[in-house]
């Protein structure tokens, strides 16, 4: 159960090795927190990360979770609830960025990326929602991206998967709002992390810790959407409405 300040007792990270996801989890941990579960594809990597999250008061559990395996999502959530009780805060942070050139040359690789980013979010998101309905509360943080807000030709497969994810999360949030549960859609710009290492940072770039801090603040304020940095909301407010012919020619990398 979350307390009056939205401090969660039981936190679940889907995509347990995600740098941004872990930053959000660390920011969510409070004196009220008892258990953190890291849902990871690789248990070995998860164990290394777990040691950095655990403390005297917080137990960390590492459980196998594969975003691309939709059939496994409901059993994962059921087992989690059976073991640790109500899901207070769930952070959905899995995702692959990929290279557009790889997708162009092998459409199956592209389809796999979309399966993880979008299909996996649908199946795990709905499994979480089912439990939220059952328990009558809960918060879900969905890490979307500005890339889905207006899709660029340079990474349109990734962008389109995030566009789908973003729309799904909004709809889910509207469904759950009257039931006392909250879905927060986080739209960061370029984030300096392992996923973007070696890439040229776009303007208004940010870091996982900043994303995490803004996310927790938005959650506590009862918000449904947060842009990081906040300026991007206005930048994309303009981008959204640019004619295609202009958008296509913008030197955005």
């Amino acid at each position: 159960m979350n307390n009056a300040f939205g401090e969660a007792q039981h936190i679940v990270l889907l995509g347990g090795n995600s740098e941004i996801g872990l930053a959000v989890v660390r920011a969510l941990i409070s004196p009220a927190t008892q258990t953190v579960t890291l849902g990871c594809r690789s248990l070995d990597k998860g164990a290394i990360v777990a040691a950095t999250v655990a403390s005297d008061t917080v137990t960390v559990d590492v459980v196998h979770f594969d975003a691309a395996d939709s059939a496994g999502h409901q059993p994962f959530i059921d087992a989690e609830v059976a073991k640790h009780g109500d899901l207070d805060a769930v952070v959905m942070a899995f995702g692959v960025l990929g290279e557009q050139s790889d997708f162009d040359s092998d459409p199956v690789v592209a389809a796999d990326a979309v399966t993880t980013n979008y299909v996996g979010a649908v199946s795990s998101g709905l499994a979480v929602a089912k439990q939220f309905r059952r328990q009558g509360h809960g918060v879900l943080v969905v890490l979307s991206s500005v890339a889905g807000e207006r899709v660029r030709s340079a990474n349109f497969v990734y962008g389109s998967s995030k566009a789908g994810l973003d729309a799904f999360a909004q709809g889910l949030g509207d469904t759950l709002a009257p039931l006392g549960a909250q879905v927060l859609v986080v739209r960061p710009g370029f984030v300096h992390s392992a996923m973007t290492k070696g890439m040229k940072p776009a303007p208004f770039s940010t870091t996982p810790d900043v994303v995490a801090a803004r996310t927790v603040k938005a959650l506590r304020a009862g918000k449904h959407t947060v842009w990081v940095p906040g300026t991007l909301r206005f930048v994309f407010g303009i981008f959204r409405h640019l004619p295609r012919a202009v958008w296509r020619r913008l030197p955005l990398g």
């Binding site: 159960m1 979350n2 307390n3 009056a4 300040f5 939205g6 328990q135 009558g136 509360h137 009257p178 039931l179 006392g180 549960a181």
Partner: peptide
């Protein structure tokens, strides 16, 4: 009837019948 309920402080609602 399913409704979101909270205490007098209106801090952390949950829904129930």
């Amino acid at each position: 009837m399913r409704r979101a309920m909270s205490g007098w402080g209106r801090t952390n609602p949950s829904s129930c019948e």
